[in-house]
Amino acid sequence: MDLSKKRLFLLDLDGTIYLEDSLLPGAAEFLEDVRAHGSAVRYLTNNSSRGVDAGLEKMRRLGIPAEREEFLTAVEATVHYLRTSRPAGEAYFAVGTASFCRQLRQAGFDIRETPDDDVGAVLVGFDTELTYRKVEDACRLLCRGVDFLATNPDLACPTLYGFMPDCGSICTMLQGAAGREPHYIGKPDPNMIRLALEQTGCAQSEALMVGDRLYTDIACGVNAGVDTALVLTGEATAADAAVSPTPPTAIYQDMAVLLAAIREARR
């Protein structure tokens, strides 16, 4: 992999750029450097608990300049999937935050908060406002036979204290209760990367996917045919990468070490 040829950096956020409200080592310097050299940045996040506006506000609060068009989220991927792959006018029971439901309604979808007879699918996101009532209603619908959709398979979201259950863990609970497997929409599906390549006009060989999860971030890059870099600041370890069915092209301790490798490659 020739890092000097990369001009599109596809970056995960949680566990890669920051943990909660703390920037990870080298993240700010990395972003400043690649922008100064004319490279494009796209933030690819499976976090569906908040919208792009919240993501923008957080980055700016952390002192990182960011633009709306740089964010490609699981919600946007979900909107695209629902518009292109599901029946028009279908009703969805959402297991997600108020922000998640609001974004879907603003996109024109019929989002329900009760297990109505005309609901066509259960749609699960990273729900930091999860209640047992939502779980029970989702199971009622799944046992009835409606479709099971989810924004992403991430099992854990990294925090300063360790990890908290993400969308994949919620789905595992529902799967265990209802005996149904979900269709996952976000990473590792390659559509977010394909959209980023289209937006920037970059070739696959010019892109680098950087993330902390093997089965979402790195697998997404592999599925899209781009080089990948695993950073060890979140979920995965080097030992995990050694046995992964989708190993990364390279492994770096953090964004600071990746930046040093890019600078060395430019010489």
Rank of each mutant, 00 (worst) to 15 (best):
Leu130His: 13
Tyr161Gln: 09
Cys171Leu: 13
Val210Thr: 01
Ala77Leu: 10
Arg263Gln: 15
Thr246Ile: 03
Thr73Gly: 13
Gly201Thr: 05
Ser4Asn: 10
Cys202Phe: 11
Glu198Cys: 12
Asp116Ala: 15
Thr73Asn: 14
Glu57Tyr: 05
Glu32Gln: 15
Val79Gln: 13
Gln106Pro: 10
Glu181Ser: 14
Gly38Met: 10
Ala239Thr: 06
Val257Ala: 12
Gly145Pro: 07
Asp53Gly: 10
Ala260Lys: 12
Leu31Pro: 05
Gly15Gln: 00
Phe9Gln: 07
Asp147Trp: 11
Leu208Trp: 04
Asp117Met: 15
Arg112Gln: 14
Asp53Trp: 14
Leu160Glu: 11
Tyr132Glu: 09
Thr216Val: 01
Leu8Trp: 01
Arg50Phe: 11
His80Arg: 14
Pro190Leu: 10
Met1Leu: 04
Leu155Gly: 07
Glu32Cys: 11
Glu198Phe: 12
Met173Val: 11
Arg68Leu: 06
Ile251Val: 09
Ile262Glu: 09
Val231Lys: 00
Pro182Trp: 08
Glu20Thr: 02
Gly234Trp: 00
Phe100Asn: 11
Gln253Ser: 09
Leu141Asp: 05
Gly234Gln: 00
Met255Lys: 01
Gly108Gln: 08
Ala224Ile: 03
Phe71Tyr: 13
Phe93Glu: 13
Gly168Asn: 08
Phe30Tyr: 15
Leu31Trp: 03
